[in-house]
Protein backbone atom coordinates (compact mmCIF):
# COMPACT_ATOMS: atom_id res chain seq x y z
CA UNK A 1 0.00 0.00 0.00
CA UNK A 2 1.33 3.36 -1.00
CA UNK A 3 0.78 5.91 1.70
CA UNK A 4 1.57 9.55 1.22
CA UNK A 5 3.39 11.67 3.68
CA UNK A 6 2.07 15.10 2.63
CA UNK A 7 4.85 16.60 0.47
CA UNK A 8 6.23 18.64 3.34
CA UNK A 9 9.24 20.00 1.52
CA UNK A 10 8.75 23.38 3.25
CA UNK A 11 9.21 23.32 7.00
CA UNK A 12 7.37 25.70 9.30
CA UNK A 13 10.29 28.07 9.63
CA UNK A 14 10.79 28.32 5.87
CA UNK A 15 7.09 28.89 5.39
CA UNK A 16 7.02 31.68 7.98
CA UNK A 17 10.00 33.39 6.35
CA UNK A 18 8.38 33.13 2.93
CA UNK A 19 5.12 34.48 4.27
CA UNK A 20 6.81 37.43 5.95
CA UNK A 21 8.58 38.32 2.73
CA UNK A 22 5.44 37.78 0.66
CA UNK A 23 3.52 40.16 2.92
CA UNK A 24 6.03 42.86 1.99
CA UNK A 25 5.24 42.31 -1.71
CA UNK A 26 8.38 40.27 -2.31
CA UNK A 27 7.56 38.92 -5.75
CA UNK A 28 10.01 36.04 -5.46
CA UNK A 29 8.51 34.88 -2.17
CA UNK A 30 5.02 35.09 -3.62
CA UNK A 31 6.13 33.14 -6.67
CA UNK A 32 7.78 30.47 -4.53
CA UNK A 33 4.69 30.12 -2.36
CA UNK A 34 2.38 29.78 -5.35
CA UNK A 35 4.67 27.36 -7.17
CA UNK A 36 4.95 25.22 -4.05
CA UNK A 37 1.23 25.05 -3.37
CA UNK A 38 0.09 24.93 -6.97
CA UNK A 39 0.14 21.12 -7.26
CA UNK A 40 -1.57 20.57 -3.92
CA UNK A 41 -4.32 23.05 -4.70
CA UNK A 42 -4.66 21.70 -8.20
CA UNK A 43 -5.26 18.14 -6.96
CA UNK A 44 -7.62 19.34 -4.28
CA UNK A 45 -9.65 21.19 -6.87
CA UNK A 46 -9.33 18.52 -9.54
CA UNK A 47 -10.98 15.90 -7.33
CA UNK A 48 -13.84 18.27 -6.70
CA UNK A 49 -14.47 19.53 -10.24
CA UNK A 50 -13.14 16.51 -12.14
CA UNK A 51 -12.03 18.54 -15.16
CA UNK A 52 -8.48 19.51 -16.02
CA UNK A 53 -9.22 22.91 -17.52
CA UNK A 54 -11.51 23.95 -14.70
CA UNK A 55 -8.96 22.76 -12.16
CA UNK A 56 -6.21 24.76 -13.83
CA UNK A 57 -8.35 27.88 -14.08
CA UNK A 58 -9.49 27.65 -10.50
CA UNK A 59 -5.97 26.95 -9.22
CA UNK A 60 -4.75 30.01 -11.07
CA UNK A 61 -7.55 32.05 -9.49
CA UNK A 62 -6.62 30.74 -6.06
CA UNK A 63 -3.01 31.82 -6.57
CA UNK A 64 -4.15 35.26 -7.66
CA UNK A 65 -6.41 35.53 -4.62
CA UNK A 66 -3.51 34.50 -2.41
CA UNK A 67 -1.32 37.25 -3.86
CA UNK A 68 -4.08 39.84 -3.56
CA UNK A 69 -4.98 39.08 0.02
CA UNK A 70 -1.71 37.82 1.46
CA UNK A 71 -1.63 40.93 3.72
CA UNK A 72 -4.82 39.74 5.42
CA UNK A 73 -3.55 36.22 6.05
CA UNK A 74 -3.58 35.15 9.70
CA UNK A 75 -3.25 31.81 11.46
CA UNK A 76 -2.49 28.61 9.57
CA UNK A 77 -1.44 29.27 6.01
CA UNK A 78 -2.54 25.77 4.96
CA UNK A 79 -5.99 26.30 6.43
CA UNK A 80 -6.21 29.68 4.78
CA UNK A 81 -5.19 28.59 1.30
CA UNK A 82 -7.40 25.48 1.28
CA UNK A 83 -10.30 27.60 2.53
CA UNK A 84 -9.77 29.91 -0.42
CA UNK A 85 -9.72 26.92 -2.76
CA UNK A 86 -12.85 25.48 -1.21
CA UNK A 87 -14.68 28.80 -1.59
CA UNK A 88 -13.53 29.01 -5.19
CA UNK A 89 -14.99 25.61 -5.93
CA UNK A 90 -18.29 26.59 -4.33
CA UNK A 91 -18.37 29.79 -6.41
CA UNK A 92 -17.45 27.80 -9.49
CA UNK A 93 -20.50 25.56 -9.12
CA UNK A 94 -22.70 28.50 -8.38
CA UNK A 95 -21.77 30.56 -11.41
CA UNK A 96 -21.58 28.06 -14.21
CA UNK A 97 -23.23 24.94 -15.53
CA UNK A 98 -21.13 21.99 -14.60
CA UNK A 99 -19.91 19.92 -17.46
CA UNK A 100 -21.50 16.54 -17.80
CA UNK A 101 -19.79 13.75 -15.95
CA UNK A 102 -19.39 11.80 -19.16
CA UNK A 103 -17.35 14.56 -20.76
CA UNK A 104 -15.19 15.02 -17.72
CA UNK A 105 -14.58 11.35 -17.28
CA UNK A 106 -13.80 11.04 -20.96
CA UNK A 107 -11.11 13.71 -20.69
CA UNK A 108 -9.70 12.13 -17.58
CA UNK A 109 -9.54 8.68 -19.09
CA UNK A 110 -7.82 10.02 -22.15
CA UNK A 111 -5.16 11.66 -20.04
CA UNK A 112 -4.58 8.58 -18.02
CA UNK A 113 -4.35 6.32 -21.08
CA UNK A 114 -1.56 8.60 -22.14
CA UNK A 115 0.07 7.93 -18.81
CA UNK A 116 0.02 4.20 -19.57
CA UNK A 117 -2.60 2.97 -17.09
CA UNK A 118 -4.70 -0.08 -17.86
CA UNK A 119 -8.27 0.34 -19.05
CA UNK A 120 -9.90 -1.68 -16.26
CA UNK A 121 -8.06 0.27 -13.59
CA UNK A 122 -9.11 3.48 -15.24
CA UNK A 123 -12.75 2.48 -15.15
CA UNK A 124 -12.46 1.61 -11.47
CA UNK A 125 -10.79 4.92 -10.73
CA UNK A 126 -13.46 6.72 -12.69
CA UNK A 127 -16.22 5.04 -10.70
CA UNK A 128 -14.45 5.79 -7.44
CA UNK A 129 -14.07 9.44 -8.33
CA UNK A 130 -17.72 9.62 -9.27
CA UNK A 131 -18.61 8.08 -5.93
CA UNK A 132 -16.44 10.61 -4.12
CA UNK A 133 -18.26 13.40 -5.82
CA UNK A 134 -21.53 12.15 -4.38
CA UNK A 135 -20.26 12.89 -0.87
CA UNK A 136 -20.98 16.16 0.86
CA UNK A 137 -18.53 19.03 0.32
CA UNK A 138 -17.15 18.65 3.80
CA UNK A 139 -16.64 14.90 3.37
CA UNK A 140 -14.95 15.40 -0.02
CA UNK A 141 -12.56 17.93 1.52
CA UNK A 142 -11.57 15.56 4.30
CA UNK A 143 -11.16 12.56 1.96
CA UNK A 144 -9.05 14.46 -0.56
CA UNK A 145 -6.86 16.10 2.08
CA UNK A 146 -6.40 12.85 3.97
CA UNK A 147 -6.03 10.24 1.23
CA UNK A 148 -4.97 12.17 -1.84
CA UNK A 149 -2.82 14.87 -0.25
CA UNK A 150 -1.77 12.67 2.67
CA UNK A 151 -2.26 15.12 5.55
CA UNK A 152 -2.66 13.95 9.15
CA UNK A 153 -5.97 14.32 10.96
CA UNK A 154 -4.65 17.09 13.18
CA UNK A 155 -3.40 19.03 10.18
CA UNK A 156 -6.76 18.72 8.44
CA UNK A 157 -8.48 19.84 11.62
CA UNK A 158 -6.33 22.97 11.59
CA UNK A 159 -7.05 23.61 7.92
CA UNK A 160 -10.78 23.25 8.26
CA UNK A 161 -11.05 24.94 11.61
CA UNK A 162 -12.48 21.87 13.27
CA UNK A 163 -11.44 19.59 16.11
CA UNK A 164 -9.57 16.37 15.36
CA UNK A 165 -12.57 14.45 16.69
CA UNK A 166 -14.86 16.23 14.24
CA UNK A 167 -12.53 15.40 11.36
CA UNK A 168 -12.43 11.73 12.40
CA UNK A 169 -16.23 11.72 12.52
CA UNK A 170 -16.47 13.23 9.04
CA UNK A 171 -13.89 10.74 7.77
CA UNK A 172 -15.82 7.82 9.26
CA UNK A 173 -19.15 9.01 7.86
CA UNK A 174 -17.60 9.63 4.43
CA UNK A 175 -16.10 6.14 4.23
CA UNK A 176 -19.33 4.58 5.52
CA UNK A 177 -21.33 6.49 2.90
CA UNK A 178 -19.00 5.24 0.19
CA UNK A 179 -19.25 1.69 1.43
CA UNK A 180 -23.05 1.91 1.31
CA UNK A 181 -23.06 3.04 -2.30
CA UNK A 182 -24.12 0.16 -4.54
CA UNK A 183 -21.28 0.54 -7.04
CA UNK A 184 -18.68 0.45 -4.26
CA UNK A 185 -19.76 -2.98 -3.10
CA UNK A 186 -17.84 -4.79 -5.80
CA UNK A 187 -14.49 -3.30 -4.72
CA UNK A 188 -15.02 -4.44 -1.20
CA UNK A 189 -16.31 -7.86 -2.27
CA UNK A 190 -13.53 -8.44 -4.79
CA UNK A 191 -10.94 -7.54 -2.23
CA UNK A 192 -12.54 -9.85 0.28
CA UNK A 193 -12.05 -12.72 -2.22
CA UNK A 194 -8.39 -11.85 -2.30
Amino acid sequence: MKLKSGNKDLDDEELIQLLNRAKFNDSRALGTLCAHFYSKIYRFIYYRVNAVEDAEDLTSEVCLRVVKSIHEQKGSFYAWIFRIASNMITDHYRRRVVRSNVESVGESIEEMVDAGSRQSELIEQQELRQALRRLTEEQQEVIVLKFIEGYETDEIAGMLGKSAGAVRAIQFRALTALRNMSDMEKFIEEDRKI
Binding site: M1, K2, L3, K4, Y38, S39, Y42, R43, Y46, Y47, V52, A55, E56, T59, E111, M112, A115, S117, E124, Q125, L128, R129, L132, I143, F147, I148, F172, L175, T176, L178, R179, M184, F187, I188, D191, R192
Partner: peptide, 17 residues
Amino acid sequence: PLLRLVQKIETLPQPEP
Protein backbone atom coordinates in the same frame (compact mmCIF):
# COMPACT_ATOMS: atom_id res chain seq x y z
CA PRO B 1 -14.47 -2.64 4.27
CA LEU B 2 -13.65 0.93 5.26
CA LEU B 3 -9.92 0.25 5.25
CA ARG B 4 -10.22 -1.41 1.85
CA LEU B 5 -11.92 1.66 0.54
CA VAL B 6 -9.10 3.77 1.96
CA GLN B 7 -6.63 1.59 0.07
CA LYS B 8 -8.63 2.07 -3.12
CA ILE B 9 -8.86 5.82 -2.72
CA GLU B 10 -5.16 6.07 -2.06
CA THR B 11 -4.41 4.28 -5.28
CA LEU B 12 -6.13 7.03 -7.21
CA PRO B 13 -3.58 8.81 -9.34
CA GLN B 14 -2.31 12.15 -8.17
CA PRO B 15 -2.98 14.35 -11.16
CA GLU B 16 -0.13 16.75 -11.79
CA PRO B 17 -0.78 20.14 -13.33
